[in-house]
Design a protein around this nucleic acid. Structure first.
Length: 293
DNA sequence: AATGGTCAAGTCAGC
DNA sequence: GCTGACTTGACCATT
């Protein structure tokens, strides 16, 4: 069981997603920014190892504008050495990595252009993990996409477009239940048709479910992960008190997390804590796991 | 140095 | 119709 947090480390005053405007694109600017982001990534990963945080989501801004037509710079080649060094570090320390392309990534969209841009974006993410030299247990997670007024057709379109993806992408892609359109049940249906593993998001599941208990949900999502996919990943969070429904809590709710652990007992999971204070709560989660809290 | 408008991309809910 | 939310605010022109 590995514990992690997404994208941002608040203890270190650095980020891995420095960017620039499309209008100020230049190869120089791009190279500078990517070098900066990769160096910071290395720092954050080293922090994680020092603190036994073995699961990390790398933010999509690592390579700015990577899938945009303006970016013709051969970054895959140019940063090959940096990528392989970081990748070796990840493998050596048994870190688990995930990535999560943003909301514009919709392989079930109605427009062909949107779909092809989305595939390019997913390809960028899988390329990063490939350049690290990581095995297929390091995943790229997306949501099913839009409903477009007809959920069934939109699910069918997801399945048909998924089936057309390259093996390279299919090896890494996993789908996550969302908080209002596609529930865990929908994701499991898609998984049955395609073999795509399902990431359970506990807060989304609380808001959008079909009456399954948390234990059933964890169990059924976990079953969609094959050996080659590694230990099932889960996105854990809880509701922020006094904020809009679906807002992630600022810091870990100890009791809620313990309930989650007991619902998941007997199942090996890697847990991504989608909590605002990031590594701080992840460290608390480790304490809870070790029965120190 | 501080600030406010704006930023590649899509969809949906809530007002 | 507009705004905020989504895994995450940051960039940059202007003052």
């Amino acid at each position: 069981m590995k514990i992690g947090y997404p994208c941002i480390n608040n203890s270190l005053k650095v980020t891995t997603f420095k960017t620039f405007r499309l209008g100020s694109y230049s190869d120089e600017r791009f190279k500078e920014t990517v070098s900066y982001n990769l160096a910071n990534l290395r720092n954050i990963l080293e922090f994680n190892i020092r603190h036994d945080l073995k699961f990390f989501r790398i933010g999509s801004g690592l390579i700015p504008l990577a899938s945009h037509p303006v970016c013709v710079f051969p970054w895959r080649e140019y940063f090959k050495k940096e990528f392989s060094e970081i990748g070796e570090y990840i493998a050596k320390h048994g870190l688990r990595i995930s990535m999560h392309p943003d909301q514009f990534t919709l392989i079930n969209a109605l427009g062909e252009e949107i779909i092809s841009r989305s595939i390019k974006e997913i390809e960028y993410h899988t390329d990063v993990l490939d350049l690290f030299g990581l095995d297929p247990s390091h995943k790229v997670q997306i949501h099913v996409g839009g409903a477009y007024g007809d959920k069934e057709k939109s699910i069918a379109r997801f399945i048909s477009n998924y089936n057309k993806l390259s093996e390279k992408i299919k090896n890494r892609l996993v789908i996550e239940n969302d908080e209002r359109l596609f529930s865990l049940k929908d994701c499991l249906f898609i998984s049955k048709q395609t073999g795509v593993p399902v990431i359970l998001d506990t807060l989304h599941h609380k808001l959008n479910n079909n009456g399954e208990s948390l234990a059933q949900a964890v169990n059924s999502a976990a079953k969609t992960w094959k050996n080659i996919d590694g230990v099932p990943m889960t996105d854990y969070s809880s509701q922020a008190p006094d904020k809009r429904t679906g807002a992630h809590t600022n810091s870990i709710d100890t009791e809620d997390f313990k309930k989650f652990l007991s619902a998941a007992s007997g199942i090996d999971l890697d847990i991504m804590l989608e909590i605002k204070d990031k590594e701080k709560s992840a460290l608390l989660a480790i304490e809870i796991l070790n029965n120190n809290l």
